Structures are given as C-alpha cells and as structure tokens.
Computed example of a mutant assay.
Amino acid sequence: MIKRLMWGIIGGFMIFPLLFMVGNSFMGTLELQEAYGAVLGNAGGGVSMRLIPRYPTLRPLVELLMDSPGFFVMFWNSVRQVFGVLAGQAVIGIPAAWAFARYRFRGRRVLFMIYMILMIMPFQVTMVSNYLLLSKLSLMDTHFALILPGVFSTFPVFIMEKFFRAIPETMIEAAKVDGAGSLCIFLKIGLPLGAPGIMAALFLNFLEYWNAIEAPMTFLKTKSKFPLSLYLPDITTDQISIAFAASVVMMIPAVLGFLWGKEYLRMGIAASGLKE
C-alpha cells in the first residue's frame, strides 16, 4: 500500500506539468496575465497556479490554427526535417548496426569505440566541426544542415547493434545451412527480429529532433526554414495563451507516437540494456 502511494505521488509530480500546460491552454490572455502577471512583468503581486480555467475558451487554439500561418510553416519544416533524419538513419544506421553485431572485421572494436565516444559527446563539442563542414558543403541555412548530421547519429546504431547481437547464432547458422545468403538473412531474420530495437531507436530520435533547439538556432538563419521548436521563443508575453496552445499541439505527435509504439519502445530499451 505504501509503495503504491509512493509511486502515485511520484507519478503525480511527473504528470503535473502536463496537466498544468493543458489546463492553461484553455485560458484567455487576460486570465493568464492575472494569474502570472508577476512572472511576465505585467503586474506586481504573487503568482497563482491554476489547473482549471475560470473562463474556459478555445480562442487561443483557434487563433493558433486559423490566424497563425507561421505556425504551419514551422510545423511542416519540423516534419520535413525530422522524418528526413529518420529515413536517413534507417538507410544508414540499420545496416551499420547489423554489421557491428554480426560481422567480425579488422578495426571493429576501435571503430565501435569511436561510435560510443561520439554518442556521449554533447552538441556543443561537435558544433564547430559540423558548422565548418556544412559551410564547406554550402549547406548552411538549408534543411539539409539539420538532416545530414542527424542521419549519421551514432545513438540509434548503439541501440540496434545490441538488439541485433541478441539474435541467437544458431538461428543464423540454420539459415546458412538452408542456403540463405547474407542479404537474405538480414532481410528475413535481422529486420523482423530487430524490429523492436529499430522502432525504439527511431522513436527516441524522433523525440530528440522534434524538440531540438540548439542545432536549428546554430545552422539556420532564415525564419521560413525554422522548425516548430523555435516557434515558442518567438511568442511575446501578450500572446502567452497562444504559447500554451502551441505547446499542447506540438506535444500531440510525440504522445500519439508513444501510444502507438510504447510496446516496441519498452522491448527495445530492455533489450539494449539501457534499463541498467
């Protein structure tokens, strides 16, 4: 009983920001300024945290979806950039992970160690080198400035490699005895059995690039090419109600993706050893 209560309290703390954001997305600008005027710099006094609006309204959502063309431009920019990254990771990362997991070749350990080092490096460390390379390729201020570095991300390779490595060697040997070639084994055994790891890697990277801020701010200069993650910083305090509505809309694809692939995500993370 105590354990359930403890987990319930922890769950409540984790879900509170979500409820707070959704509740405030139905508040008008005046009500939000009344509640958070001290924080926004519009008035003195204290701050009242409200989950349920006194005067619920859909005006912020309607204004966002009907009168904010910039929002849709940035939304489709995010779709183009994020799914471009995921498609590239599927083409490059899946075969790379399979090669690391199932083949033994000279320099494999050293190369995989380099992958691991690159994986733990923060964006600030590789920012200058990426900037110089993209500038040399004349890709700065283009969608490819975000897609190309993401395609060669090492994180999905790390997850998928551990999952591919968990495939029993006896199954691979049996397929070889039956006359299956390397490509057939990869397509008929590797991809189906590695599907949870592949889905987990792609979903985790979807969350990362859907919410990316630093890379777009560094590599993009033209506002018409900005992703949705840069829409909120552009909203002024008198549009605070639209900011909450935009936050909810931006969260919807991630929530739907999680509900659709949560089982793949659980299995992939468990198989990759990240739970430990």
Rank of each mutant, 00 (worst) to 15 (best):
M199L: 12
M119T: 10
V151F: 11
A254Q: 07
Y36V: 08
G257N: 01
I9P: 14
I52H: 07
L137W: 12
G41L: 11
N24C: 12
I198T: 11
V249Q: 02
K3L: 09
P196D: 08
G23H: 12
F226Y: 15
M171K: 00
L30Y: 09
P60F: 06
L191T: 10
S135Q: 10
K3E: 03
P56L: 01
F16P: 11
G46F: 13
E161P: 00
M27G: 08
P168L: 04
L61W: 13
P196R: 03
L86D: 10
I189F: 08
I9M: 14
F71E: 04
I94M: 10
M119L: 13
W260L: 15
M74R: 15
V177R: 07
F155H: 00
K136P: 12
F100H: 05
P168D: 02
G273E: 04
F219A: 01
W260R: 15
A43H: 14
G37V: 05
S68V: 03
M140N: 10
R165G: 02
W76E: 09
Q124I: 11
P69R: 01
V110I: 13
L111W: 06
R59F: 03
R80I: 15
T170C: 08
I94K: 10
A38H: 13
L30A: 15
N205G: 05
R106N: 02
Y103D: 00
A270E: 12
S135K: 13
S48D: 14
F72V: 04
V177H: 02
I172V: 14
F105W: 15
E34N: 10
V110S: 02
L132G: 07
L228C: 14
G273C: 07
V255C: 04
V128D: 06
S25Q: 05
L228R: 06
I235E: 03
E169D: 06
F20V: 02
K223E: 12
S138T: 00
L65H: 05
G181V: 12
L204M: 14
I94D: 05
I92R: 11
I52T: 03
F71C: 01
Q124G: 09
W260I: 14
N42L: 15
N130E: 07
G37M: 04
L259D: 00
S25P: 06
M171N: 04
I198Y: 09
M116P: 04
F123Y: 11
T29V: 11
A101G: 08
S25L: 11
M66R: 10
M127Q: 14
M27N: 08
N42K: 13
C184S: 15
E208G: 07
V22N: 08
P192M: 01
R80A: 15
E169C: 06
A195M: 15
P122W: 03
M116V: 13
G37R: 00
R106W: 10
K162H: 12
F26G: 09
L111Q: 01
F100L: 04
F144E: 07
R109G: 14
V125A: 14
Y231T: 06
M127I: 12
A38C: 05
I2C: 00
L40N: 09
A166N: 13
F158V: 00
L259H: 00
D234Y: 13
K162G: 09
L202M: 15
E161S: 05
L207W: 03
E161G: 01
